[in-house]
Write a protein that binds this DNA or RNA. Structure first.
Length: 761
DNA sequence: TGGAAGTTA
């Protein structure tokens, strides 16, 4: 009996698929260690000859001319054209890196910065770290004297501006992958526009794969004369070296794309010749479901005597790395590989040999609700740009096919590109960074895509509560916030007006203002605000760290802060769930997740940071190593700020109180309804199933690091606290109120937030 | 009962 072939029906539109393919210069370390053999027609040529074969080589002089004559060049470089590796070399060869100047290239991801730098160093016969270098967090591989071409993450570029606001060392900066519109790329874009106004000699190349070029060009164009010949920015398109991808759409919408993915993969396997399959889904759970369904069907098919076998592999960021590496392994000729992946395979990881792509048409994205200050993950339709990027994964080595599990009509309805991260994030860290760079009036910052005004207000409010900026200063706040917001519409204006009125109604005693270092001009406060901004962390973590000396537990808090930056410390293999849970339970303490993580780390250190020990206890070894690196970095900052090195010697109370001093705004109380409610917004919350407090006797009061919304609102990283601590450590935020108990006709004391809700109208 | 993917001297 043949394995079931699903009812999925595709038709091919008359047009050929978009000829997109993956940039050949982006190789993750994982990929370069892969053993798959790729036919390279130019392998016998010298490096110089290979460079000249790249599509971009023909435009070398044209590019140099445009960089010479325009402040900003927007480069539509199709993948595979060689822009990331070649342009910096052209610039250096043309003298842009002479006299101690540097050509900088930014990347959204660390691995890309490192691997492209390595490639360029190879091409130039240079030792990595001399003429060509890279700089990412924890790894500065540059020589301040010798480095002429520097690759760095865009987050690192923003950090560099703190030390050198005009980036004086750089003659040219290339922002690569700008179309991805990550948070840091967008911050860098706004800052660079400001820098260009002060530094006419700084050249900018904005490299983008899609057609956002006009937007970039207009944003950077400083010509306000209306005469196009005076434009300061210009667009250039470079063709890529690509293979065509045929696109197939489904005839009528499918009710269940998970099932359809399985059916389509099986159909490809039975009908098509050689070539591996890559399927895009939205999350880990879907990936695992499809993997197990495919394995089952492939087994059934093998029993019927089909000679070609299927090797089904999951791929998502949370997958332990030995499992991830399997997708790069070569398979024998009678085996077809199916990689079932999340969006990680769209930009970050490139699997070679993919000929068939299955696109479910959806993606899981972060969304931010400025009203409740809660970030959540939502499954939404992909954008056209994303869908084309996915399709391009099939055309890397030879022509391929992409099966879209939606109709062509639905494709036409998709948004052109994904909403920039800036418009769907919590802005507190962004605003903090901008303020640290001396941008006091963040509402007038030149955002390429301005975030919602309410997100701004929410972020300012949190920063104020932490004692960071002096947004309570009255006139100044009215001027800077209201002045700018009023242009954005009446509703926003009303929100901000209420906000300011409330702030002004709560004057602070002078002593307190000094203690928090408030500044009447809405600048970052000295020293607290500036210090908080120096930490590469969410401001709540930074505040907690800076307070840790006062609680006599900086050692413990350093560990906790570092551990909280790492995801998936507990490893749970699907086939050893109960065994893993048993091991994990040994670390759990009744106080909650923070102290549990402290236990894990201390045990890790006690066992000499052994990977063997981690494996036995189902702990993420790489994650723990990373935590210890982060801890070292944070420790250096505490030393610099003269926070005393102290340990509470096993006493949990100082540690818990210190956590409250940073996370007091995230407090919730357990109600008789069986759920928690936030104190500030009365928002219903639940303990996340990954918390050690899940399914335990719920503590009456808790603080949490963050809330994520899936089926319900879940608190992650939860710790039990006492209400008295909240009142004592955040008296400006909470007050005690008498509450009438409905059932017992008694009153008892409870807490409410002093601040009213923003935008509650 | 369940988080996508990134990032910070």
């Amino acid at each position: 009996m043949a394995a079931p072939v699903g009812p999925v029906k595709f038709w091919k539109p008359g047009t050929e698929g978009p000829g997109v393919s993956v940039s050949e210069e982006r190789q993750s370390p994982a990929e370069s260690s892969s053993i798959s053999v790729i036919y390279n027609p130019y392998a016998s040529l010298s490096i110089e000859q290979q460079r000249q074969k790249l599509p971009i080589f023909k435009l070398r002089n044209h590019i140099l001319y445009l960089v010479e004559n325009y402040q900003t060049l927007v480069l539509i470089g199709e993948t595979g054209c060689g822009k990331s590796t070649q342009i910096p070399q052209y610039l250096a060869e043309a003298g842009w890196a002479a006299e101690g100047r540097v050509v900088g290239v930014t990347q959204p991801r660390r691995v890309a910065a490192v691997s492209i730098a390595g490639r360029v160093a190879d091409e130039r016969g240079a030792v990595l770290g001399h003429e060509v270098g890279y700089c990412i967090r924890f790894d500065d591989c540059t020589d301040s004297q010798a480095t002429r071409i520097k690759f760095l993450t865009d987050g690192m570029l923003v950090r560099e501006m703190m030390a050198d606001p005009l980036l004086t060392r750089y003659s040219v900066l290339m922002l690569d992958e700008a179309h991805e519109r990550t948070l840091y790329t967008d911050i860098a874009i706004g800052l660079l526009r400001k820098i260009q106004k002060k530094r006419g000699d700084l050249r900018l190349i904005v490299a983008s794969a899609t057609l956002d070029a006009e937007k970039f060009k207009n944003f950077f164009n400083q010509n306000d004369t209306g005469d196009p010949s005076k434009d300061t920015s210009v667009i250039l398109t470079v063709e890529g070296r690509t293979f065509p991808v045929d696109i197939f759409y489904i005839q009528s919408p499918v009710p269940d794309y998970v099932k359809s993915t399985v059916e389509t993969a099986m159909k490809i396997h039975q009908m098509e010749n050689d070539g591996d399959i890559l399927a895009f889904l939205t999350g880990q759970e879907e990936v695992e479901t499809v993997v197990s369904m495919l394995i089952e069907q492939a087994r059934a098919l093998s029993r019927t005597g089909m000679k070609k076998h299927l090797r089904v592999l999951p791929m998502y960021a949370g997958l332990p790395s030995p499992e991830q590496m399997k997708v790069f392994e070569r398979v024998s000729h009678n085996v077809r590989k199916v990689v079932v992946a999340t969006n990680v395979a769209e930009t970050s990881i490139t699997v070679r040999g993919i000929v068939f792509v299955i696109d479910c048409g959806f993606v899981k994205l972060r969304a931010y609700n400025p009203k409740t200050a809660i970030e959540c993950l939502v499954v939404v339709p992909v954008s056209k740009a994303s869908a084309n990027q996915r399709a391009g994964r099939a055309g890397r080595n030879r022509s391929g096919k992409c099966y879209r599990l939606y109709t062509e009509e639905d494709f036409e309805k998709l948004p052109k590109s994904t909403v920039p991260e800036m418009q769907r994030s919590n802005l507190a860290p962004v605003i903090l960074q901008l303020k640290a760079l001396g941008i006091d009036n963040v509402l007038r910052f030149p955002f390429l895509s301005p975030p919602p005004a309410q997100s701004m207000v929410q972020a300012l409010e949190l920063l104020y509560a932490l004692g960071v900026p002096s947004c309570k200063g009255g006139f100044c706040f009215r001027h800077s916030v209201l002045g700018s917001l009023s242009k954005l519409g009446t509703r926003t204006f009303t929100v901000a007006q209420k906000h300011v009125a409330r702030m002004n109604s709560q004057p602070k005693p002078p002593g307190e203002m000094e203690r928090e270092g408030l500044d009447m001009h809405c600048r970052l406060t000295e020293p607290l605000g500036m210090r908080i901004a120096e930490f590469p962390l969410n401001p709540m973590f930074a505040k907690m760290l800076l307070e840790s000396g006062n609680f006599g537990c900086s050692q413990e808090i350093l560990t906790i802060a570092a551990m909280m930056q790492i995801q998936n410390i507990f490893v749970i293999p699907p086939n050893q769930k109960s065994q893993a849970a048993r091991r994990h339970r040994k670390f759990a303490v009744e106080e909650g997740d923070h102290l549990t993580m402290l236990n894990v780390y201390e045990a890790f250190v006690k066992h000499s940071k052994s990977s063997q020990w981690c494996q036995e206890h189902f702990l993420n070894y790489k994650g723990l190593v990373r935590a210890s690196v982060v801890r070292e970095q944070l420790k250096k900052l505490l030393v610099r700020f003269k926070v005393p090195k102290k340990s509470s010697e096993g006493d949990p109370d100082p540690v818990l109180r210190c956590i409250v001093s940073g996370f007091f705004a995230n407090a919730a109380k357990f109600h008789s309804t069986g759920a928690y409610r936030t104190i500030r917004d009365d928002q219903e919350l639940h303990i996340h199933p990954t918390s050690v407090l899940y399914a335990e006797k719920p503590p009456r009061w808790v603080v949490y690091n963050e809330v994520i919304q899936t089926a319900k609102y879940y608190m992650r990283d939860v710790t039990a606290v006492e209400s008295a601590w909240l009142l004592e450590l955040a008296p400006h935020f909470y007050q005690q109120v008498a509450v009438q108990d409905q059932h017992k006709a008694q009153t008892h004391l409870s807490l409410t937030a002093k601040r009213a809700k923003v935008g509650d109208q």
